[in-house]
Design a binder for these strands. Sequence first.
DNA 1: TTATAAATGTCGTATAATAAGATATAATCT
DNA 2: AGATTATATCTTATTATACGACATTTATAA
Lengths: 141, 141
Amino acid sequence: MLREIEQLNQLWTDIYYHLRYTHHEKITHQSIRIMQVIEKENEVGIKVIAKAIQVSHNTASEHIKRLIEKGYVFKSRSTKDERKVILRLTDLGSDVLHRHSSLDEKKLKQLLFEKMSDEERQLIFAAFALMRGRAKTVGRN
Amino acid sequence: MLREIEQLNQLWTDIYYHLRYTHHEKITHQSIRIMQVIEKENEVGIKVIAKAIQVSHNTASEHIKRLIEKGYVFKSRSTKDERKVILRLTDLGSDVLHRHSSLDEKKLKQLLFEKMSDEERQLIFAAFALMRGRAKTVGRN
DNA sequence: TTATAAATGTCGTATAATAAGATATAATCT
DNA sequence: AGATTATATCTTATTATACGACATTTATAA
């Protein structure tokens, strides 16, 4: 069983290594993690960021300041509670995050539409959709 | 077609977001990228690293020095050409890289063996193996 | 067998990122 | 009104990142 888990991880990291974007703009690790949280969760504020990356709230606030300076993130305030900040990615921020965590669209296109049959492609989609659906429930219960 | 590609990327990043390790030791972005190259390629030296992360050879050499200090990497010399360094990950280095690029084994175990039937699990493995096989050929023609 | 090239290492220096404590401000709650 | 909550700013300290210049060692060419 452990054998299978390791094997799946091997497949996972191999796929990412071969299909990721090769050219990256300079960006730090913390920046990526912060932007991932902003993209995947909703109504993200400073506190959520601080907890997600395990730093103090003032450090989180400084990270956000820099991300705003770079044009990757923008702030708005919650209408319900005006103390709360709501963070969102700009289009530029989305692009940058994409190039650091997604698969290269050109490579994916080649893979799915030139190197695979329709049935194979459908197999891939079915498997990923299944895995995503179940992954969402992992950790709770 | 672009729609499908974007959708697959959405699935990919969602899966990673839900199944990745949540606790990370402090490590920089460049360190991870360097260790990925060392793990996935063979006979990696300073030049290869420098090219992979787009820095000068002296900067690459300094990165490697720090990774060695941290106990993540070790050096040997090529027997054919003694000028050349060959880099490898230590066990600790492998662990650290694993926690930054692989899926959490506990979560995977839960996902594959508690939340899926045998047929579903086989579907996942078949799809990933297929994808990995084809991914290796992407980029070259 | 020198001369030169290739691969790597080291030193000095500069900038940016990272992080926390202390303190401040503004909105909300009691 | 006073306390609490969420965020911001300022100061300070450490580490990471990067490069140019120069040094070293091994390999190859003339």
